Computed example of a mutant assay.
Amino acid sequence: MARLAKVTGKQSRRLATALQVKAISFVQNDVQLCAFAMDASVLWSFVSINRMIEDKEQGYQRTLSGSRVKAVADYIEAGHPITTSILISLPKATYSAKTEKLSIPAGKDVGWVIDGQHRLAGAHLAAEHGSDIPLSVVAVLGQEVDFEIEQFITVNREAKGVPTAIVYELLKHLPSRKKPSDVAAEISAELGSALRKDPDSVFSNRIVVTTSPGPGQVSLTNFVRR
């Protein structure tokens, strides 16, 4: 169970041999990016993670949560895809438009994870169990740590999670492979939806899904929880 513990501090890795990968390159506001696919085991083997160190002016990534990593690995091993990309920085990599290949030089700390460390760690754990999937990767070329920190803050501060009430409302559309807690939430959500649509119910138009509850109202989230 040691591998499921929380991991703190900077994690440096080294790429022993220069690597070339087929990629698509594009530019956004003078910033060059490359998109490509790479097996989780390969990506994990050379990208470093600049985690924040307690009481020190170092790092920016959060602590790696073992439970989140295991949840991602379980999800992959159950046959599901990881459809969102891993965002990394490759400060010294170059791209050839002629060959359409991205060249990553050998050395220490040649790549840094900006966003997706839990997905990557979970995919790595699944790879160790025999499920090594290719991951979608977007790499920023030629940028330094200040840019990485800016992107990390932007991604995490601006991201808005889907309201839980909407998740409960959509559970009925999921495949039959559900956890018991999902089934219970789905039944409760269906009951809440029926009551809010029933003009004779005390909950008529008083259970809300997509907005915050007003006076005399309750969210579908709290209805399901209670």
Rank of each mutant, 00 (worst) to 15 (best):
S48P: 05
E158R: 14
G107R: 09
H118W: 02
S89W: 03
I24C: 14
A97D: 15
V21A: 02
D55M: 04
G130T: 13
F36Y: 06
V155S: 03
K178H: 06
V7S: 11
N222M: 12
A2H: 02
Q20P: 02
V47Y: 12
A40F: 00
P134Y: 07
T164S: 06
R13W: 07
L15D: 14
G130L: 11
D198M: 08
F26A: 04
E190R: 00
V27A: 09
A97V: 10
M1L: 11
Q11C: 08
R3M: 12
I24P: 05
A37F: 06
S193K: 14
A73M: 07
S85T: 05
A139Q: 07
R177E: 13
Q217R: 03
R51I: 01
T94H: 10
G161E: 12
K92F: 09
T83M: 09
K10D: 05
V209N: 02
N156G: 11
S201P: 07
A2T: 04
D146H: 05
R206P: 03
R177T: 10
E150G: 09
H80I: 01
L15M: 01
R196K: 08
F223T: 04
A184I: 01
P81E: 14
K172P: 00
Q117K: 07
V138C: 12
F46I: 00
G142M: 02
A40T: 01
N29D: 15
